[in-house]
Design a protein around this nucleic acid. Structure first.
Lengths: 338, 338
DNA sequence: TTGTAGGCGTTATCAC
DNA sequence: GTGATAACGCCTACAA
């Protein structure tokens, strides 16, 4: 079933040169005479030669492969970052190996280990907070690693992202400036997600600075439209009812879910309730009245992570921390309190 | 920078056994005595041994890696399929290698070739229609390949999916039964996408069976919310205006984009216009009034593709064609014509 | 500029 | 049940 596949030795033979010359002709075209390079290229094309990645990796001790470990692939924000990484890597002959762990810590360690066994030359991780076992295997592998979507407070790790805390505080500040004084929060699960945790902390800090808090009106749930809507339902069905005029959400999916629940109940947004999101996914702009949210440069995060990794693999230094701008996009879901 | 990493030889030495025994102890535990297996396992744990995938692949001539080539990763329908594939493969010690080509034929060939060079043992492709160069490299690699989201009309290739044509015809039939006689269609690009082509053909056939056609009211565009909305805008802004009572869309993103444009213009759905989608993404159920669409078992497609590949790699036969059920989900966007 | 030879870490085929 | 040993396909000093 498996067909015969030409090896480099076959190409060399067919081109009438030695194995090493053929190897050089493909890897370092500058080191061989023009006509020999052409001979080799012709022979390769004739035989339909395809390099054997494993053999190459074994001999050269690098796989030209980068691994990315994502919480989930089912979030547009990660999708665009992934695409950007792959594009950037591809331009340099690198391939992206993707793994997702569905927000399960154990799985994260398992899949990361799998990538490491596959011999990835570098790693892109999301967030700075990971199980000790994860750091351990990455450390031991001794390959460069970029932490994304966050700024590492310790300043020790290489990361490209932004301060989730300050960004969330900015959204909260926007609501405070509009005059809101009673807040509710729909957060992602903070236990296993440092971005969610930082965002929630940012909201709390901004409120605390005004002597406010949202205690009893903070719900944690899974980042999805359906869960956002369900959480909003739970919030509104409390005995206290809608005892808040502003809702800060951990991401756009939660915010849009909440918005849909409001529309279903006839709660007017923003007249009766203001809502903010986080991420600025495409739907945020499309769904009336337009979600006020924080624009996160997801593609740029992916691109920069890839570039930084390539730089480091080439032996060049990069700044430990690269901060990207997050912009508040004011749309239709925020306004003065009733 | 790169740290020392224990090799299998080190483990064998530390355990006081030969290299071959150590190898067997990990690969075929049944072939070694219990206590020797334990010795090896202890030594491996002690040294933090991590198998070297490339060396393993080179020696065993299989990488325990499967490649999936997707049109885009930025579509929830592919995200869930991907997740399912990865999960199923992971359970058997296989890793998923992902690549996307953004609906660009040349890129598809390039990334597929990259996967092949990486030594993937099997391939998952989307659709049955691909550039000849693609089929050529896959053929030459001689590895099993599963075509998904479609049924191959030639009956020659291994595929798991459904008939896009019949499914689209079913949605059209639903509208016909409601009494609609004037149709418009928002289709994906048919030139480079056989699923989109088949769906459009299905709509046309269903209409033709009643002596109807939608000529002049068929638009092709990119599968996205924004493009769907823009296409709807273009459709409504024609001189002829809204000269149709039913709109059949190539997927949910297009349909929801169209729905949003209708809502923005005050066109009541379904009272004035009925809309159908295709895929049944989460948003389809959440966005009022709820999109009538075709439910595609995307996760199951991914899962079955993975299972079939694993079966074939194990030397077992599978049916060439596996058809999965597509269900019409009637929600709020379809009703009788005004 | 080109060729030779040794090695990369594992699996697989033999003997024992 | 266990242990030598030869591949696996390529890269890369080093020699010519």
């Amino acid at each position: 079933m498996r067909k015969f596949s030409a090896r480099l030795a076959d190409v060399a033979h067919s081109a009438g040169v030695s194995l090493s010359t053929a190897s050089r002709a493909m890897a370092e075209p500058g080191l061989v005479r023009n006509d020999t390079r052409e001979k080799v290229e012709k022979a390769a094309a004739r035989l339909g030669y395809m390099p054997h990645g494993a053999a190459r990796a074994l001999a050269s001790r690098r796989s030209r492969t980068i691994g990315a470990v994502l919480p989930t692939v089912d979030n547009p924000i990660f999708a665009s970052a992934t695409q950007a990484i792959a594009r950037e890597l591809g331009a340099s002959g690198y391939t992206l190996l993707l793994a997702a762990y569905d927000y399960v810590s154990d799985t994260e360690v398992t899949v990361t280990r799998a990538l490491l066994e596959r011999g990835v030359d570098g790693l892109v991780l999301v967030g700075a907070d990971h199980p000790p076992a994860l750091f351990q295997v990455v450390e031991q592998a001794g390959i460069p690693c970029e932490f994304t979507w966050t700024i590492d407070s310790s300043g020790y790790r290489h990361c490209v992202g932004f301060s989730n805390r300050l960004a969330a505080a900015r959204a909260t500040q926007h609501l405070l400036e509009l005059g809101h004084r009673t807040f509710a929060v729909l957060s992602g699960h903070t236990a296993s997600n440092d971005r969610a945790r930082e965002r929630l902390a940012g909201v709390r800090e901004a409120l605390a600075a005004r002597g406010l808090l949202a205690d009893g009106r903070i719900l944690e749930t899974t980042f999805s439209l359906g869960h956002g809507r369900a959480a909003m339902r739970a919030l509104l069905d409390r005995p206290a009812g809608r005892d808040f005029t502003a809702l800060v959400c951990g991401n756009d999916l939660l915010a849009l879910g909440a918005l849909l629940e409001c529309q279903a109940r006839g709660i007017r947004v923003p007249e009766e309730l203001s809502i903010t999101g986080f991420d600025d996914i495409e739907l945020a702009a499309e769904l009336p009245p337009g979600l006020t949210t924080l624009h996160v440069p997801s593609a740029e995060i992916g691109r920069r992570a890839a570039v930084r990794l390539l730089e480091r693999l080439a032996g060049r230094e990069v700044a430990r921390e690269e901060q990207l701008p997050v912009e508040l996009i004011v749309r239709g879901t925020t306004g003065p309190p009733p």
